[in-house]
Design a protein around this nucleic acid. Structure first.
Lengths: 219, 219
DNA sequence: CCTCGATGTAAGCACTTGCTGACTTGATGA
DNA sequence: TCATCAAGTCAGCAAGTGCTTACATCGAGG
């Protein structure tokens, strides 16, 4: 019901959005179409799942011929893997400021969850739940999730090779599981009242959960 | 890797398991095959999703011809709807003891989550996240989840038409979202360390979360 | 024994899906 | 101007999918 077969080549418009304005937009920019394909694919894969997403649909989203997917990414699985890699990279750089307090990290995670249905990026988390059956992509997916877990756990006081703090790792993953569950219920499942809840309503309970799990403010 | 193309007609064996022992098992028992098909389908749908599940696969799981699916359930969507209905019924009767304390309800939910990867029934929760695109089945799915939410919320003190306790409803759904997230991470995503965590390790943090969310012991 | 309805099977149709190879189109430089 | 090559299109194949139709087989009643 949301976006159907329109949009044509529109998505290509913001390729090389003006970084230094050399390539104005010739309509024939390989890297731009590649990026547009990944963007469209990621959205589809995240919301509809791997199998339910067709390459024809992705191509039509971008307004480009299907054959380009095979030209640029070899196969549907190749495109999926590219999506995984890109998502992995983005999550990496987003969380690349290591010296954050646990409170800041929690606030960021909450914002991520709350904004998921509206913005594009937070759907990355959803994508990390999807599996294609491809070994490679699945490895990337799991590694990214585990990396994400360790980052969160580290902010909560977990240190590698410390048997005492091992439980923190598990708790961090429970926090991520909670986030994933909420995002799923809000986007895919469309279940009331979570789906229609305002961000403000969600923030308080989420803060409580994450606080309990990750020991907000030295608790 | 778990169950492949074997099993043949084995699943039919436990049809009419001995309720009153009239129909011994003729090998040609319509209701038994129907039940076996629903059981196999539910497992496939829950773990692999709707689109990735093929009717041929389900039929082969049971050891029966594909055409029977269309004979008994009209279509793949019909079979999916039957799965939803059955799951809805089971969750209904499981929680049909209304006068439970919130602590008991929480313990049950925890047990549900912890046992999900091993047993059959807890995967029902996972199934409730899957969508087929069929209007009817989707309605059942959402209604069941919302019903489940209200039950949990009611145990936590929520009363209909009470604006004050409206937040409890949201918190109950957050608890369900958490459960769903954990089950997903443990079964589908296979992410460490949650996937390999023992039930005991999970119980304590989960109890904490649900306690904070649902006000365990009059908090 | 034979008929008849119910249970199950085999073959295949119509359609989708991922993918391919040959082709066209546009930009660029000698 | 035009040869060249990358960027993109087109038609179609092979496999897979849901589903249907015609047929086989079993159990029971006349």
């Amino acid at each position: 019901m949301s976006n159907e077969t329109q949009s044509s080549t529109a998505d290509l418009g913001e390729a090389a959005p003006g970084a230094d304005g050399e390539l104005i937009r010739s309509g024939r920019d390989a890297t731009a179409t590649r990026r547009a394909l990944v963007r469209a694919a990621r959205r589809r894969f995240a919301t509809d799942g791997y199998r339910a997403t067709t390459v024809r649909r992705i191509a039509s989203d971008v307004g480009v011929n299907v054959a380009l997917i095979n030209r640029y990414f070899v196969s549907k699985e190749g495109l999926f893997e590219a999506c995984m890699l890109r998502t992995s990279d983005e999550l990496e750089t987003q969380a690349s400021t290591p010296s954050k307090s646990i409170d800041e990290v929690i606030e960021r995670l909450i914002e991520h969850v709350v904004n998921a249905p509206d913005r594009d990026d937070p759907l990355q988390l959803l994508l990390l739940l999807r599996s294609s059956g491809d070994e490679n992509a699945d490895l990337i997916r799991r590694r990214t999730l585990e990396h994400f877990t360790r980052r969160l756990a580290a902010a909560a006081g977990w240190r590698p090779d410390d048997r005492e703090s091992e439980a923190i790792l598990l708790r961090a993953q429970l926090a991520i599981a909670t986030s994933l569950g909420v995002v799923m219920l809000r986007t895919s499942a469309a279940v009331q009242p979570v789906a229609s809840a305002s961000g403000d309503d969600l923030t308080a309970p989420l803060r409580q959960i994450f606080g309990v799990l990750l020991g907000r403010s030295e608790q």
